[in-house]
Simulated assay, not measured.
Amino acid sequence: MKFASLAMLAVSLSGCSLFSHGETGKSAVPESQRTLHELCDFPKQFYITRFNATELKVSPAQGKSLTEKIGNFNECSYRNGDSKYLGYVYISYRIAGETPTVSKYPPSRILTVDGVPVTQVIEPLPPTWEPSAPPPIQLSAADDGVDGQLRFYSSDDETIQAGAKVLVNMIRTLKN
């Protein structure tokens, strides 16, 4: 009976390290020294230039503060002066061994920016939108355990290429 109790205790305690944040815990999500303010600032010029958003409104998602450190699942959304939604930027650090985030929609093409593949997904327009409206574009990339996304509405290839460059530069700058 004592042996069974000790075995159960050993199994229970071994499971405690699965989510350890100590030196030996490889499952912990890394935390950057960068802040959400830096993430939110990164694509500002892209939205201002490409969408003529002179009065850009930026807000971090999920009620987070701009002073918080970047960790897992960080997002900022962008609106123009009249509150029209322009898109979002997203960054997340993966736990070692996790695979990159994948869109539920098939990729329309793969772009390459400085050796990093960037997946372009054209999402379907919501049913209430005009068929002539620019489609939602989601660009996704992963580099050294960091996933990033940039979303906006455009059918202009130059804007899509510029967005891919912003995304890769953002991941490389903020991954430290």
Rank of each mutant, 00 (worst) to 15 (best):
T67R: 02
V11K: 04
K64M: 07
L139N: 04
A162K: 13
D157R: 13
S12M: 14
G163I: 08
H37S: 12
S20A: 14
I70V: 09
A162P: 01
N80I: 08
T54D: 14
T99C: 00
D156V: 12
D147C: 00
V11C: 04
Q45N: 12
M170E: 10
Y85K: 12
S12C: 14
R94I: 04
V168C: 06
H21W: 08
S103T: 02
R94V: 04
L125C: 05
L9M: 12
F42I: 02
P126F: 11
Q120I: 03
A142F: 00
S12F: 14
L18P: 00
Y47K: 07
A164R: 05
S140Y: 01
Q149P: 00
S17D: 08
A141L: 05
L167M: 11
G25D: 09
T159P: 01
F42W: 14
G25P: 04
P43M: 14
E75L: 08
Q138V: 10
F46H: 05
Q138E: 07
L150M: 04
V168L: 08
L39G: 03
Y93G: 03
N74K: 04
G87N: 10
D114R: 15
Q62G: 06
T112D: 07
I137M: 09
N52W: 05
L56F: 11
E123Y: 13
A7Q: 09
H37D: 12
S27I: 02
